[in-house]
Design a protein around this nucleic acid. Structure first.
Lengths: 120, 120
DNA sequence: CCCGTCGGTTACTTCAACGGAACTTCCCCG
DNA sequence: CGGGGAAGTTCCGTTGAAGTAACCGACGGG
């Protein structure tokens, strides 16, 4: 199965690229939010709760650069900017769903294990 | 599908728990390495390349606390310690495989998009 | 004419993580 | 007696990531 051995230390290693992106604190929640519908900056901000505009902007810019999210600004006033998933972004929903399914099924075990480790 | 709305800000939110763990810089590579076979500390260290013993120890301890990895030390001399996946850890391989499949298929697009964004 | 809104940006500070190197313990071997 | 190897641990020093808070520019409304 592991026919090709990737150099884990390489910045171009597919696993590293995607696990880093996924590991980002807000990425997954943004992708999940946008999977429901297109949203504006302030909608995302409110939805995510404790995220500063700076970090939200940075994360959205990164997702845009990676081709996962599309940014559309309208010449309205007050300004209107809408964020949505690209086709590539939507294709990521499938493996994410697998992860979430695992999480909802097994995280109680993890938390219990964590609790035991702490009390030891 | 999203019948239950989890509080993203809660530390016990399953998605947050698992995405944080996954997002850790070395977690996935350790899990993938241990999916092949049980390994000793120094084997892992060599396999992962540029990881300091400190960080490797920290990561392994965290994985152990979460019940994903098992640590077995033998009273040999010189010391011998073996790390392996628990059943819970092995069950995580399935969603990871989905992620890796997506990564190997789509990361070229992501890198190309990233390249374009940089040159703009 | 000033205010408020939206979608940010900028500057400042802080804080936890990371790298690197040295040190430790236990036992065996020469 | 003096290494040497395994598996860490400890001690800095650095840094980059993150939070805070203030600010901005365009426009429309009162």
């Amino acid at each position: 199965m592991t026919t090709v051995e990737w150099d884990v230390t390489s910045p171009a290693c597919p696993s590293r690229v995607i696990f880093s992106r996924i590991g980002d604190r807000w990425t997954m929640f943004i992708v999940l939010a946008l999977s429901e519908r297109t949203m504006r900056f302030s909608e995302l901000k409110e939805r995510l709760g404790q995220v500063s505009p700076k970090v939200l902007t940075e994360t959205l810019r990164a997702l845009e650069a990676d081709g996962l999210v599309e940014r559309q600004s309208f010449p309205d006033s007050p300004p209107r900017v809408e964020y949505s998933l690209t086709a590539l972004g939507r294709s990521l929903l499938e493996p994410i769903a697998a992860m979430r399914a695992w999480a909802e099924q097994h995280v109680p075990e993890v938390l219990e294990s964590r609790r035991r480790a702490l009390s030891a």
